[in-house]
Computed example of a mutant assay.
Amino acid sequence: MIKVIFVFIAATALMAYFLRDTLLGDGVTEKTGIKSFERIASLPGEISESSGVVALYGQNQFLTHNDAGNKPYLYKLNSRGNIQETIKLKLPNVDWEDLAMDNEGNIYIADTGNNNNGRKELAVYKINLNSPSKVEAIRFTYEDQKKYPPPKKERNFDSEAAFWADGNIYLISKDRGRGELAKVYRLPDKAGQYKAQLIGSHRIKAQITGAAISPDAETVVLLSEEKLHIFSDFSSPDKFYEGSYKEVELDDAGQTEGVAFEDDASLIITSEGGSLYRYKL
């Protein structure tokens, strides 16, 4: 009997060791509850590859766009997924990947897709919906990238995730080399040519596809396929990756690409499969 108990304990310990990242990661993993996560609408046919989203606070409306190879349009949607307005921009859509918004309502379009890590002309375009023809271009390269492209295992210079805070744009990398490290870069929110400054990182065994910060700037959420990565209790947006961390699984949500805060406690999420979701924190 003692031998049986010993074997059982040893097997349990071994299983816990090999599943430690799944069970714990760098924080806590949760399943979504029925009440916390819901599909609220289908996206219209014009939005076949939603890649980024922002919520227009107080309007119950959202902006989204399509991925690379599509027209440089922003689509204003209501909560039923109906297009209220199509904003046609005279900008290149090399590989639009995310949207962000500042406290004055300016929209930042992250033309930062870089699948092969070979792009040398990356940009974030700043517009205001009241005069969308006026565009500021924030052009940049990554300060730590030396080769275009780098070796395959070192390809961590793609970004599909951006948010704005305190006069800065924060870009989160999509680790195409090893799929284990989300790097955090910072850019000024003014037109110019810059080196994106690497300010930190967080080990996440996923490829990040979206990012958002809450209106009160107390929570940052990163998105990957069918999963949220939630950071809280940090000292400033510059250090969000050092805060408390947990993961939330979004069962059956598909290729989730865009995430935005609707308010301090609610997220809007889009998928390339054509769905609009709401998640309650």
Rank of each mutant, 00 (worst) to 15 (best):
F231P: 00
V184M: 03
A253Q: 02
L63G: 05
A55E: 04
T209P: 03
I34T: 11
L91N: 00
G177P: 03
K153L: 11
Y279W: 13
G45C: 01
A182G: 08
F163R: 03
S236F: 00
S48E: 14
I127W: 01
N82F: 15
L74T: 00
L198N: 10
E262C: 05
N156S: 12
A260F: 11
T29L: 07
N116V: 08
K152E: 15
D264W: 05
K31D: 12
K147I: 11
R176I: 03
A253H: 04
D189Y: 06
Y241K: 05
G243S: 08
E97T: 08
G45A: 11
T22V: 14
G27R: 02
S235F: 04
L43S: 06
S50V: 00
P150M: 08
D233G: 11
G179C: 07
A265M: 12
F163P: 03
G118A: 15
F234W: 12
P72E: 00
A13P: 00
A211I: 09
D26N: 14
S244A: 15
A191V: 07
D67Y: 10
I169Q: 02
M15W: 11
P151N: 10
E249W: 09
N82Q: 15
A123N: 06
P151Q: 08
N60P: 06
I213H: 03
R178P: 00
K90T: 04
G27E: 02
A253T: 09
D216H: 05
D175P: 03
F6N: 08
A162Y: 01
L77T: 02
A100E: 04
K246Q: 14
L91I: 05
V259S: 03
V7T: 14
N103L: 13
A165L: 09
D216I: 08
V220T: 10
Q84W: 15
P72M: 02
D95R: 07
A253Y: 05
G200F: 04
D251K: 15
L250C: 09
G179A: 10
R203E: 14
K35Y: 15
L222A: 07
E30C: 09
I107E: 00
G118I: 04
N82G: 08
L281E: 10
N66D: 11
I5M: 13
S79V: 09
L129S: 06
S51N: 10
G27P: 00
N130Y: 00
G27D: 05
L77Q: 02
D233F: 04
D252A: 14
Q61Y: 02
I47P: 02
A253L: 09
A196D: 07
Q255N: 14
D21G: 09
I109T: 03
I199T: 02
A211N: 07
S173F: 01
D263E: 09
G118Y: 08
T22G: 13
N130P: 00
E226G: 01
Y142E: 07
S236A: 13
I199V: 13
R80K: 15
L187D: 02
V54N: 00
D238F: 03
